[in-house]
């Protein structure tokens, strides 16, 4: 269960990193990137809720659940930053090179690394 959630979260964060990167390199416009980020926010929420719905059996599992959920919450926060930066760009016509953007990119990259580590530890659960 935890592995599935990590997998889903890792995929969503990976997509967001790619989408923001495309925006920074002006390879994709706001509508496509914004839709991606919105879809991925949904995915992260799904992953977290799916995990919250399952009941861990052992103490070790409970610890793992807590760890994965907090990783997912951090990922959601990072994605939130990215969506805010995108909205600011849209309304003020900023470039993709603002402090807000750089902060979002850094946060997402950290999340991606964290989830990747968890994924390597847990496997894909398939």
């Amino acid at each position: 269960m935890a592995a599935t959630a990590v997998n889903q979260g890792s995929s969503a964060v990976g997509t967001s990193v790619l989408a923001l990167d495309l925006l920074a390199r002006e390879r994709a416009g706001t509508p496509a990137v914004g839709t991606s980020l919105e879809d991925m926010a949904g995915e992260l929420e799904d992953a977290r809720k799916g995990l919250l719905d399952s009941v861990p059996a052992t103490a070790a599992e409970r610890g793992l659940h807590r760890e994965v959920i907090s990783a997912l919450v951090r990922a959601e926060a990072a994605l939130g930053l990215a969506r805010q930066a995108l909205a600011a760009k849209d309304s003020r016509g900023d470039t993709a090179d603002t402090p807000g953007f750089r902060a979002a990119q850094t946060a997402l990259a950290a999340s991606a690394k964290e989830l990747k580590g968890l994924r390597q530890r847990l496997g894909t659960g398939r």
């Binding site: 997998n7 889903q8 890792s10 995929s11 990976g14 997509t15 990193v17 790619l18 989408a19 495309l22 994709a28 496509a32 839709t35 991606s36 879809d39 991925m40 995915e43 990747k116 994924r119």
Partner: peptide, 14 residues
Amino acid sequence: PAGVEVTSLSQIVL
């Protein structure tokens, strides 16, 4: 390679 598994149309065009 990015560990992305497609679940939405927006990912397909990236």
